[in-house]
Design a protein around this nucleic acid. Structure first.
Lengths: 126, 126
DNA sequence: GTTATATTTGAACATATGTTCATATACTAA
DNA sequence: TTAGTATATGAACATATGTTCAAATATAAC
């Protein structure tokens, strides 16, 4: 605990002027801290579920694979806007696609997102 | 299926110019559709997990209740910024607080968010 | 009362986000 | 090849978001 200065009661002020009341709790949190890259990855997945329109399309995909124009019709988005969203989801490996002629069918890559959706649905009416 | 016009193969163009390739899939999705308000509520919860800093603070709270200034120290946010975030989380009933003297201790309201975090952590290294 | 600590609040600001529009590409059928 | 359908892409735009800063409030100690 070098470079710390007690200021009152339990409060401590460290070398870079960060106020800390419970050094034990902060240290404990730091010890269990997740690597920054993992944190970013996790956050970006949650973020994809954090938009009502995208949530709606993902809920639909958790039931059935669907093509761009059906997803657009279902959500009320333009096909262009839907395509943009699907690209982001594909870039994050949340969604995959298969081609059948002119039509691209999108579906969820794995159970990750459906698991998250399931928990969300269980708690909607809390 | 009134007000629809076949244009080629299976494609259909309805009265308000929405292109639909698989009416069955769209209808099925519509049938299982979630009320708009529920969708918004679900999305706003996920959205709270969708920011790296907020995710970090929520992961910390899932281990231990913590006060504003400790959370600020842990995440690297200013105490003001942390307070703003905690207010949003409180407004969404994700977080609650108890006072002990001058200090406010924040903690998760229920298992909803910890369940979501657990699933997220299980899939980080996919 | 005054002073110090812990937290909150509102306005301002820069950046991120979701959508639109116009255009490009990919595939199919004639 | 030409025309039609399905999807993708990039730039532009308005709105949302997260942070900062200055100032306010709440509790405690003196």
């Amino acid at each position: 605990m070098a470079d710390t200065k007690r200021i009152q009661n339990n409060s401590v002020m460290d070398a870079c002027n960060v106020r800390v009341v419970h050094l034990d709790k902060v240290s404990n949190a730091k010890a269990k801290e997740i690597p920054g890259a993992d944190l970013e990855r996790m956050a970006s997945t949650y973020k994809m579920l954090g938009d009502p329109t995208r949530l709606k399309l993902l809920l639909a995909l958790s039931e059935n694979e669907m093509c761009v124009c059906d997803l657009a019709a279902f959500t009320g988005l333009t096909e262009s806007a839907m395509s943009h969203q699907l690209r982001r989801l594909k870039d994050l490996s949340i969604v995959k696609r298969r081609r059948e002629g002119q039509i691209l069918y999108y579906s969820l890559v794995d159970s990750h997102v459906s698991d998250l959706l399931k928990i969300g649905l269980e708690h909607v009416h809390d």
